[in-house]
Simulated assay, not measured.
Amino acid sequence: MLLDSASLYFRAYFGVPESVTAPDGTPVNAVRGLLDFVSRLVADYRPDDLVACMDADWRPQWRVDLIPSYKAHRVAEEHPGEEADEEVVPDTLSPQVPVIEEVLDALGIARVGVAPYEADDVIGTLAARAAGPVDIVTGDRDLFQLVDDARGVRVVYPVKGVGNATVMDGTALREKYGVDGSGYADLALLRGDPSDGLPGVPGIGEKTAAKLLDAYGDLAGIMAAVDDPSSRLTPAQRRRLAEARPYVEVAPKVVRVAADVPLPAYDPELPRAPRDPERLAALGKQWGLGGSLERLLTTLRG
């Protein structure tokens, strides 16, 4: 099981009231919410291995160099007209991230992040290397591109919480989007994604993109059809795709997750007992993690 950690702690932060605080009054709603998520996921899916994948670089420069608008709207607007390096995140969430990392480390849950890559890239690399079935837990549709029935790769997509999740396999993906996992990246590229600053091809929405992929196989097939006078593209589609060629040529490297991230040493085995019980107890007391931590420890022991 691979966790898109930032996706999950964002959901935890917005799903658990800020009134959930440590003894000193510091909000720990994201910390406790994430612990409850992990406990529920372990109880429901019983993974042998679990890796919390982290954003070592949430907006890699190599992606920005290819598409400057990539996640640009998420950049802090403290200095208009200047490039900022920080993502806009709630002020009371940022201080909770180091606490989450410390607690995961004390528990002995593997935590992997590699600069200059996003968590998605770490997930893509781990999924590609996995010998057995993989469940990817994320609220980010981008990772639908990794769904692969032949290899048992699925996405557990939380609807409201991880206890109410949609499991996206190849069948579910085809029913909802008309493509397989391998085609989802091309669909997203053509459709665009405002949340990631991807412009897409103007006039090519999700349904049209799915129809084009069905007719021509993949992005390369669609672009070959642009240059083929006998293809059944409409004049408008041909013009729009031709005009978008500079974007289409660079977008695949941005949209497709990496599968070759150089990973550090890590132990993915799900711990049955904390790696550092004393440190974990101290963190639990300092941050008032109470029932959330106890529930997870009970689940791990089970």
Rank of each mutant, 00 (worst) to 15 (best):
W62N: 07
E87A: 15
G221L: 06
P80Q: 12
A281G: 11
W58S: 13
E77Y: 02
P252C: 03
H79V: 08
W58F: 12
P23I: 01
D91M: 05
P95V: 10
A22M: 04
R239H: 06
E18Q: 15
F10K: 01
L189P: 01
D148I: 06
S94G: 10
G217H: 13
L293E: 01
K160Q: 10
S69R: 07
A282L: 09
Q237S: 08
R32M: 13
A165N: 11
T171M: 00
A242F: 02
A242R: 14
M168Q: 08
D193H: 06
M168P: 04
L8N: 07
G205A: 12
P95Q: 05
E102C: 02
S230V: 06
R275F: 12
G217N: 08
P268D: 04
L66F: 02
V20Q: 06
A150K: 14
A106V: 08
S94D: 13
Y184N: 07
P268K: 03
D24G: 04
L8H: 14
P116Y: 04
R111E: 08
P90W: 11
S5T: 15
V162E: 11
G183C: 08
R11V: 01
P271G: 07
L263P: 08
I67E: 15
A185R: 11
Q96M: 04
V255I: 15
G113L: 03
G200F: 00
D120Q: 12
V255P: 13
G197C: 07
A72V: 04
A210P: 08
S19W: 10
R46S: 12
S7R: 06
L35P: 07
V75W: 01
D186V: 03
G25W: 08
E86C: 03
L296S: 02
A220I: 07
Y9W: 12
E101W: 10
E77V: 03
D196H: 13
D186C: 10
E269L: 09
A225W: 00
W58P: 15
L296T: 01
A188E: 13
L126R: 06
A127Q: 09
S19E: 14
T21L: 00
R295V: 00
V20D: 10
L41V: 10
F144N: 03
V248G: 06
A224V: 02
P199K: 05
K71R: 08
D57H: 00
L233Y: 07
V155R: 12
A220E: 15
T21Q: 14
P229F: 00
V147N: 07
D140A: 09
P133M: 00
V38Q: 04
E82A: 14
N29R: 07
G205V: 05
G200K: 04
D44E: 15
F14V: 01
G200S: 08
G81E: 00
